[in-house]
Design a protein around this nucleic acid. Structure first.
Length: 834
RNA sequence: GCCCGAAUGGCGGAACUGGUAGACGCAAGGGACUUAAAAUCCCUCGGCCUCUGGCUGUGCGAGUUCGAUUCUCGCUUCGGGCACCA
């Protein structure tokens, strides 16, 4: 070896990463089209909001996605792996106001910066498909979808009580209110009456619920959360005649079996019937004061705390058609106008809320469902009984089991034409109006003469004006821009006004995954052929915080786009991986806590490959990842060791050669075996549950075996031939390539100058080669490990049992006692029971 | 309040279908190399004891089993979701 060659070549990650990134970019290595014989695979990570810089959560998310993409390419798939920007939204607008710049400028500058950061991570995206949702070329199609939904009756306008976030100056959808606070700024949300546009997601409630059963590739947790959010209840809707007035009060109940136990009625303070009940009512003033107070309290307290039950008698009564009883009507603070009918039949004996209310106002408690072996006496009950049982005091239904009685009572109500079976959902329509500038304009026009008119499709896009204008009051910024809103009515050509609210940014992210399949298509929102080729997304990866919000909206949009004829799938994401958060010092990384690690600093110090490797190694993807700077160094050390090994064994590895099983010495056999065991383990870890942490540790084990067998240490038994070293190194490089692509590409090119690693196939393991020729059998006496035996793999049970019973250490514990039984577990252990 | 998930060394985490608990990495301690340091390499590393051996140990308490981190029941703590949903 010449002096020159002896000199150590350093792992210069900076040069290496730059080199391969340039190559991938200039060759467009990861560009894909439908023009391929390979089977398609669509892997997608949730696209980022261009907030300024990428954070560790992005690194983790995109590293996971990139491993999947690169792995699937090695497995021979034609992989679609796109990236884009969820670029409408409040932070851009707020930053623009603060820095006196324009949201578009702020956004596009951030996109440029972050795109560069993502490129530095070596992520294998098809950059030709990049989209930014704030681009009119994107939101034009969204506006068209909106109009098509409008024509189908899936969009409507209404004035209703909405969630208003004062600090964000806008309305929020129900899904965006988290424990009574704004999902973005954590401020308490207040109730306001406002006019806005809604998507009829409730039309799809049943399908959204049913199709959850199809999502076997989703975490159970997410499916359960969506199921609870949709909140289906089945029961009876039933009318009660108001005594002395020609009005009916309609209620919804899931417990029709308790209808004979009704002792009063509760209605929401906002209930429309209340006006009628107050007519000529001697206590009108008192009741009005009460309801006004409750409504205000509700607005202020939001729905965080459960307040004490409160109510007021209206002085009116209802007739229970089932038994003719007259029961008082109360206004109660716990009845929600937005759920069911806004009125509840109160059965204090069998509903805890009604029970508390009845106790407070001294109302009758009448048990009608008696559980087995108990006796219920209204006055003596301490809480409501919600168990099933036998009906009592219930007219002709007395004696019936409560479960059976539910349907019989519904049937009875139906026959009397006073009610019917009813399904109620917790899910409510999606309010999409936002009183902000930086969003897609809602393409509608208000004409005083013709009413609401959709913008004709050939006039799309309705683009945002360049000038944002200023924020005044609670009014939308666009509302102060006559140049924007002044228009002509498409119908009568008279003067008209444009809608000045913009769309919720969750609308953009509800269909971007479909637009990626034909991002430059200019005829319609989606190219049907492309969409049907690529969709559904085979693997979707992102944070669990979108378990309801984005994932529910995307499912809804997929079904709508299907019904509009654009898609032929029912569900957008076949498999979903929800990755955990990146934690430091016990809490989520955030500027306010000052525990942020900047990925760019890490890339500078250790390189992208080390950064990626650590984010994959420290924890399985679904768990939270505790940040550990020392752990990053460990990953760097691991790569450096491989780097040095490959450099110093370059000739050996390049020489390669075919492995001849018969001629292998024991060290070679050991390495050969470990190589195949590792291929098997890594492949299974990725295929089964994306547990890259154990996949990486398996490769570490293989490398440890390789280096200890080949270096001049005590463990070195025999010389390793180049064939097994080459096999081990080649395997290590391909197995690690999805995780540390630049590193592996570089080392591959130094030992196999004629090819690039991208052209390689994923290695296959040979089950025979992976098989151990010696087994360690554990000898237990009464379930406790007492000895271990090295035996040939093909030993039969009888001789093994003999060996175990004669084992010196085992004999010591058998100690002359009678052997009751010997339990043999194939290739694992012998348990001697004495 | 209801629903779901988790708990394993000093730390992050392994352990297939009930079968050697602690893989892999980090930290720590000791050693080699070096004038020295860094880097690198080697060894030790759950706890306890009478230490070539033994006892004990996977949040706590029971149970099933020849055998339980794994299964069942009852708790504790932490995390997440929903929260007057009739």
């Amino acid at each position: 070896m010449s002096v020159n060659e002896q000199q150590e070549v350093l792992y210069d990650f900076k040069t290496i990463e730059q080199k391969w990134q340039n190559q991938w970019l200039s060759n467009a290595t990861y560009r894909v089209s439908t023009d391929s014989d390979k089977e398609k695979y669509y892997v997608l990570e949730m696209f980022p909001y261009p907030s300024g810089r990428i954070h560790m959560g992005h690194v983790r998310n995109y590293s996971i996605g990139d491993v999947v993409a690169r792995y699937k390419r090695f497995r021979g798939f034609n992989v679609l792996h796109p990236m884009g920007w969820d670029s409408f939204g409040l932070p851009a607008e707020n930053a623009a106001i603060k820095n006196n710049t324009h949201p578009a400028r702020w956004t596009y500058e951030n996109i440029d910066y972050m795109r560069n950061q993502l490129r530095q991570l070596g992520l294998s995206y098809d950059w030709d498909r990049e989209i930014a949702t704030c681009n009119p070329k994107y939101y034009k199609w969204e506006q068209q979808i909106f109009l098509e939904m409008y024509n189908k009756g899936l969009v409507y306008q209404k004035t209703t009580t909405v969630n208003w976030c004062e600090s964000c100056h806008t309305v929020l959808a129900n899904e965006q209110v988290i424990e009574g606070t704004c999902w973005r700024c954590d401020e308490l949300v207040e109730a306001r009456k406002m006019n806005g546009w809604f998507f009829k997601i409730t039309d799809y409630a049943e399908e959204l619920l049913d199709d959850l059963d199809k999502l076997s590739g989703w975490p159970d947790k997410v499916v359960t959360m969506q199921r609870n959010w949709i909140g289906k209840s089945t029961g009876l809707q039933c009318d009660f005649q108001v005594d002395g007035i020609n009005e009916k009060l309609s209620i919804f109940t899931t417990r029709p079996d308790t209808i004979f136990g009704v002792t009063f009625m509760s209605i929401a303070p906002e209930h429309p019937l209340l006006e009628t009940l107050l007519k000529d009512n001697p206590r009108e003033k008192e009741i009005r004061e009460f309801t006004a107070r409750i409504i205000t309290e509700k607005q202020q307290q939001s729905n965080v705390d459960l307040t004490e039950k409160e109510g007021i008698a209206t002085g009116h009564y209802c007739i229970n058609s089932f038994n003719g009883n007259k029961v008082p009507i109360f206004v109660a603070n716990f009845v929600l106008m937005a759920y069911g009918t806004g009125a509840v039949m109160a059965v204090p004996a069998h509903d805890q809320r009604d029970f508390e209310f009845a106790k407070k106002y001294n109302l009758a408690i009448k048990p009608v469902v008696i559980p087995d072996d108990t006796e219920l006496i209204g006055d003596q009950m301490e809480e409501a009984s919600t168990l099933p049982g036998i009906l009592s005091d219930s007219g002709t239904f007395t004696g019936t089991a409560s479960e059976a009685a539910k349907q019989q009572i519904i049937d009875f109500a139906k026959s009397k034409e006073i009610g019917d079976a009813q399904i109620t959902y917790r899910l409510r329509d999606w309010g999409i109006s936002r009183q902000r500038y930086w969003g897609a304009p809602i393409p509608m026009i208000q004409c005083d003469k013709c009413g609401v008119q959709p913008v004709p499709v050939d006039q799309l896009p309705v683009t945002l004006p360049e000038d944002r204008g200023s924020q005044q009051n609670d009014c939308a910024p666009l509302h102060q821009r006559p140049a924007f809103y002044e228009t002509i009515c498409p119908k009568c050509k008279g003067k008209a006004k444009r809608e000045t609210d913009t769309m919720d940014t969750f609308v953009e992210s509800s269909w971007y995954f479909a637009r990626y399949t034909s991002p430059r298509f200019t005829d319609s929102p989606l190219n049907k052929e492309e969409a049907s080729h690529w969709l559904p997304v085979d693997q979707y990866i992102g944070g669990v915080e979108h378990a309801i919000l984005h994932l529910l909206y995307s499912r809804f949009f997929t079904k709508v786009l299907r019904d509009l004829g654009y898609l032929d799938i029912d569900e957008p994401f076949t498999n979903l991986l929800t990755q955990g958060m990146v934690i430091k010092d016990g809490s989520k990384m955030s500027k306010s806590k000052g525990n942020v690690v900047d990925p760019s600093d890490l890339i500078t110090e250790y390189g992208a490959d080390t950064t990626r490797l650590f984010s994959l190694f420290a924890a399985p993807p679904e768990k939270d990842l505790e940040w550990n700077a020392k752990g990053v160094e460990g990953c760097f050390r691991f790569l450096s060791r491989i780097f040095r090994f490959v450099q110093s064994h370059r000739q050996d590895i390049a020489a390669g050669g075919k492995i001849q099983n018969e001629t292998l010495n024991s060290a070679e056999r050991e390495l050969h075996r470990k190589t195949h065991q590792t291929i098997k383990k890594v492949t299974n870890n990725i295929e089964q549950n994306f547990h890259f942490n154990t996949a990486i540790s398996a490769v570490m084990e293989l490398f440890n075996t390789l280096s200890s067998l080949s270096s001049n240490t005590k463990k070195k038994k025999e010389d390793l031939g180049s064939s097994v070293i080459c096999e081990a190194v080649d395997s290590i490089l391909v197995l690690l390539c999805p995780m540390v692509p630049h590193f592996c590409a570089e080392l591959w090119s130094t030992i196999h100058r004629e090819s690039t690693i991208d052209q390689e196939h994923w290695p296959k393991w040979d089950e025979d080669a992976a098989k151990e020729d010696k087994l360690t059998i554990v000898i237990q006496v009464r379930g406790k490990v007492r000895s271990k035996l090295q035996v040939p793999a093909d030993i039969d049970d009888a001789s093994l049992e003999k060996m175990a019973l004669n084992d010196e250490k085992a004999l010591k514990f058998i100690d002359g006692k009678t052997i009751k039984k010997v339990i043999m577990v194939q290739k694992k252990l012998v348990n001697i029971v004495v």
